[in-house]
Amino acid sequence: MIRVRGVWKRYGDFVAVRDVSFEIGRGEVVAFLGPNGAGKTTTMRMLTGFLTPTEGSIAIAGHELAREAGLARRAIGYLPETPPLYPEMRVHEYVRYVARIKDVPRAELADKVDRALASCGLEDVRGRVIGRLSRGYRQRVGLAQAIVHEPEVLVLDEPTAGLDPMQMAQIRRLIRELAEVEGRTVILSTHILPEAEAICRRVLLISHGEIRVDGSLEDVVGQGTLEDVFLREAMPVSPEDESAQEHAEEGLA
């Protein structure tokens, strides 16, 4: 479903992502781990076609991003680190708008919007203005936006950030359902290691822009814990590199 080959991203002399390659098959749920500033967000932005890699190729659902951008992007649902919300819109208006620009046919609009709202537990606030919602609700609106067009691939950048434990559990259940029942492919980044262990079967760990670990959860963890692996493999990021990475990521939007 996702095929990444020899991808680099350079910002001047700074290398944010270095020769990254991996493949993710249908229905896999992959945790994308790494310290802040390691290149997680940059990689996810390249997967979704928001950023163009300096080198290398990415294919989504068999469509090369560089050549069939429209088809590849249609197959992706993306929840960025900051949910891309319009604060002045109402929840259902917003999700409907996203469905339209994601090519959901007119006849199916109402149905798909309702389903996305129901999946994310948003029925009660469907008529509310987004800007007045709590952080947890806004995060869920962001998720509804990512799944409304029923994409084959979901790219979720810290989907449970800012949620309370109950909301977290709900979102995790939803992600598992999307993968197990509907067969969608999910790659999600998180800093909560138990979350990765709870939802994901496979782990990708990136550090200094390089993939350090790629394997099934059991193989990777072995006798220890995911935290041991993380602390062993994730090299500390120097303050300069972290700020360079953040600067690079901030600079574009």
Partner: peptide, 16 residues
């Protein structure tokens, strides 16, 4: 759109 991050939504949608 750039300040809100919604440009990310537009540029990752199947839009030219």
């Amino acid at each position: 759109e750039r300040a809100n991050g919604t440009i990310e939504l537009l540029l990752t949608s199947p839009l030219t």
